[in-house]
Write a protein that binds this DNA or RNA. Structure first.
Length: 395
DNA sequence: ACCAAGGTTTAATTCCCTTT
DNA sequence: AAAGGGAATTAAACCTTGGT
């Protein structure tokens, strides 16, 4: 057995899962992180387990709540309450039906266990375990391979470091890609939490174009289908799409990579938003605009819509480089999902504070999951230096 | 020409919550 | 682990740009 797995799992306080993991053949750290749902698919031919009394009640109740404009979570609570206050007689009906179905299921299962299908599945399982034990590998042959992505597909944003724009940032993205955070730095100051929450909510709402300059950012409207349609059908959106098409055609002619049209909508979203930070951080937000010219496709129409573009001229930033400080916000790279967080750093505090992301490791429904979280860390900028001792950045 | 680093898409996955 | 529906988030590999 792999001692690395054992020690990491123990370190993470997940030792109760160790036996099951190893038993299933996931006995290297890489294999563990790579468990997919498809690895754990149940027997397709086995009879389906019937719904429980509550689930059946829940389905029926939800049917009646369909038209009500409440959130998913609120519905679940409502259903739960209704179940608790359901008349005993009605409840008994659900329960007796569930019991009958369960009994029937049990019979079906017993019958199924005598079939060839079941025998094959059992054999497959035991073969996998044997195979796994023999060479320490998981059942790769079982994995459903995704369609290969067309050229030009995205970059692994999530594996890059955030702290680059801070003074003295010393970790390159390549270096950071090789790093693994296997322990979560303890950061719990209320202020930092507040900032973190603020930023997290922003990156969501900015990305959706829900927030506009001057909005009261403490009261965010819920995203509706209408909102999205409105945004996507707006004249601005149409303009941006045409810009993108022009650019795409041009690039294709030049032998470059074709741009996809939807890129324009992202540009649109990005440029209509002015992010707001807590007062004590105002003026401290920096974006890469302050160092480099802006995006590869500026929102300025003239500079990009011309059909006679040639390679290298598409990057014109008619505004010139943004100075450091507050004004950088207006054209900042904030506003698009995870990538927005990537370039965030608080310049004013760069010598003391750095925001970055760490990988959190936990157990979710069916796999050992890792997640990137924004953290706000004390210490000199530069990721490795700013991590508390023992934070577990390893290469 | 090369390096470093930002930028991009879709599909897959997770999350929200309750109960048995 | 299952249901309910949909938003939020992430992984994946390569392209583009700025700078040297």
């Amino acid at each position: 057995m792999n001692t690395e797995v054992s020690s990491i799992i123990t370190q993470l306080g997940l030792s109760q899962y160790l036996g099951a993991f190893v038993d299933e053949g996931f006995d290297t750290w890489e294999a563990l992180l790579d468990i997919q749902e498809s690895d754990l698919l149940p027997d397709q031919n086995a009879p389906e387990r019937p719904p429980t009394a509550y689930v059946r009640f829940s389905n029926k109740t939800r049917e009646g709540l369909k038209d009500q404009n409440i959130t998913f979570a609120e519905k679940a609570k409502l259903v739960g309450e209704n179940w608790q206050t359901l008349a005993p007689g009605e409840k008994a009906e659900y329960e007796s039906r569930a019991k009958a179905e369960k009994d029937q299921y049990r019979l079906q299962l017993e019958a199924y266990q005598k079939t060839d299908n079941h025998r094959q599945y059992s054999q497959y399982l035991s073969e996998f375990k044997q195979e796994a034990k023999r060479n320490g590998k998981r059942r790769d042959y079982e994995r459903q391979k995704l369609e290969p992505r067309p050229p030009g597909y995205g970059s692994s944003i999530s594996s890059r470091v955030e702290a680059r724009s801070g003074v003295g940032a010393s970790v390159t993205s390549k270096e950071f890609d090789k790093c693994r955070v296997n322990q979560i730095p303890a950061i719990s100051e209320p202020t930092l939490k507040r900032i973190h929450n603020h930023i997290s909510s922003f990156q969501t709402h900015l990305a959706n174009g829900r927030v506009k300059p001057g909005d009261d950012h403490s009261q965010l409207p819920p995203l509706t289908l209408e909102h999205r349609k409105e945004r996507d059908n707006s004249p601005e959106s149409a303009l941006m799409l045409s810009v993108a098409r022009a650019s795409r055609i041009d690039k294709a002619r030049l032998g470059g990579q074709a741009q996809t049209t939807s890129r324009a909508t992202h540009q649109l979203r990005r440029h209509e938003v002015v992010p707001t930070l807590p007062d004590d951080l105002q003026g401290g937000l920096r974006s890469r605009t302050s160092k480099q010219s802006t995006s590869s496709m500026p929102a300025t129409e003239e500079s990009t819509v011309s059909p006679s573009l040639s390679r290298g001229t598409t990057t014109t930033n008619t505004q010139g480089p943004q100075p450091n400080g507050p004004t950088a916000n207006t054209k900042g790279t904030i506003g698009y999902g995870t990538s927005s967080l990537r370039s965030l750093s608080f310049g004013r505090l760069a010598n003391k504070h750095t925001m970055f992301r760490v990988r959190l490791i936990g157990v979710s429904k069916w796999k050992l999951s890792t997640q990137w979280k924004v953290m706000y860390c004390l210490g000199p900028s530069g990721v490795r230096r700013s991590l508390p001792t023992g934070a577990g950045l390893t290469e």
